[in-house]
């Protein structure tokens, strides 16, 4: 039974185009990040002599206004974006889902308290809270991850509570309660599995938002600081030379778009794979 279910799982993975394409792009990005830890095709050190070199065998995408190899900058920037996405979404997912499930199971004052705290955090939009946190702690990569992660908590808490409340109102949950199951068991056995696909879709969206938010913060000069490369800051630096070197602004934007596109496809594919009822339907 377990062998056949695992086979069908692999079969579903191979049948999902989103999963395959997203998986390949994500794997490519992870490989870039891993390889850039010990090798890059050029240097990311400033060198006035090599400024604005056109694309060549030595510099595939040329060099920027500081003489840094653009491909090497993009590769090293991958590490940054993946770290931000993973950490910020994990903070939101673990804390937010736990709080949302607790609110939905307990109702009453627990739910009120969690939802009001969630409203409270929402009162400060991601970019604004990140700007305020960086104003207090000083600009930096870690501070921007904390700010984006904190913003993710109420997003997941609210979505989990909303979806879980709809499950708690179902007949099969009432039947489970009548059969004597406690709230914790019902949450784990009935509520969580039934809201998982919504959470996965939301997690991929939040991952995308985290990468985009970090890029935006770095673009404003509040995120990852020099000398560590970041796609957002590369965009900012390139924008001033937009009319002279338009491609310098295209590469980092395209890198962000590719990363987010790949992760979203993977998430979409995962949902179809994890929830085969959707694939069988109609």
């Amino acid at each position: 039974m377990s062998s056949s279910s695992s086979q069908s799982f692999i079969g579903r993975c191979l049948n999902s185009r989103s999963f395959l394409v997203g998986g390949v792009i994500t794997l490519f990005l992870l490989t870039c990040a891993a390889v850039s830890l010990f090798w890059t095709p050029g240097t990311i050190d400033i060198s006035i002599k090599t400024r604005f070199l056109p694309p060549s065998a030595d510099h595939w995408f040329g060099t920027d206004q500081f003489g840094r190899d653009v491909v090497s900058m993009l590769m090293t920037g991958t590490q940054n974006s993946i770290t931000v996405g993973v950490v910020a979404v994990s903070i939101g997912l673990f804390a937010g889902v736990a709080l949302g499930l607790l609110a939905s199971a307990q109702r009453g004052w627990t739910e009120e308290l969690i939802m009001r705290m969630s409203d409270f955090s929402f009162a400060f939009p991601a970019i604004l809270s990140a700007i305020m946190i960086t104003a207090i702690l000083g600009p930096g990569g870690v501070n921007s991850i904390i700010a984006i992660g904190i913003y993710n908590v109420p997003v997941f808490a609210r979505l989990t509570r909303g979806s879980a409340n709809a499950i708690w109102a179902r007949e099969y949950v009432m039947a489970a309660r009548a059969s004597g199951k406690n709230k914790f068991r019902i949450t784990i056995e009935h509520v969580l599995p039934n809201i998982l696909s919504i959470l996965i879709v939301q997690a991929t969206i939040q991952f995308a938002i985290a990468i985009l938010a970090e890029a935006a913060l770095s673009y404003l000069g509040l995120g990852t600081q020099p000398p560590h490369p970041s796609w957002g800051r590369m965009l900012n630096e390139a924008q001033t030379l937009m009319f002279l070197q338009p491609m310098q602004a295209v590469y980092p934007g395209a890198a962000i778009a590719l990363a987010v596109f790949g992760l979203n496809l993977l998430g979409d594919g995962l949902r179809d794979v994890l929830d085969p009822r959707l694939s069988r339907k109609r």
């Binding site: 969206i205 995308a208 985009l212 890029a215 935006a216 673009y219 957002g232 965009l235 602004a249 934007g253 962000i256 778009a257 590719l258 990363a259 987010v260 596109f261 979203n264």
Partner: peptide, 9 residues
């Protein structure tokens, strides 16, 4: 693709 594109880009 729409989600993936940074709005400032």
């Amino acid at each position: 693709l729409g989600i993936s594109v940074p709005n400032f880009w």
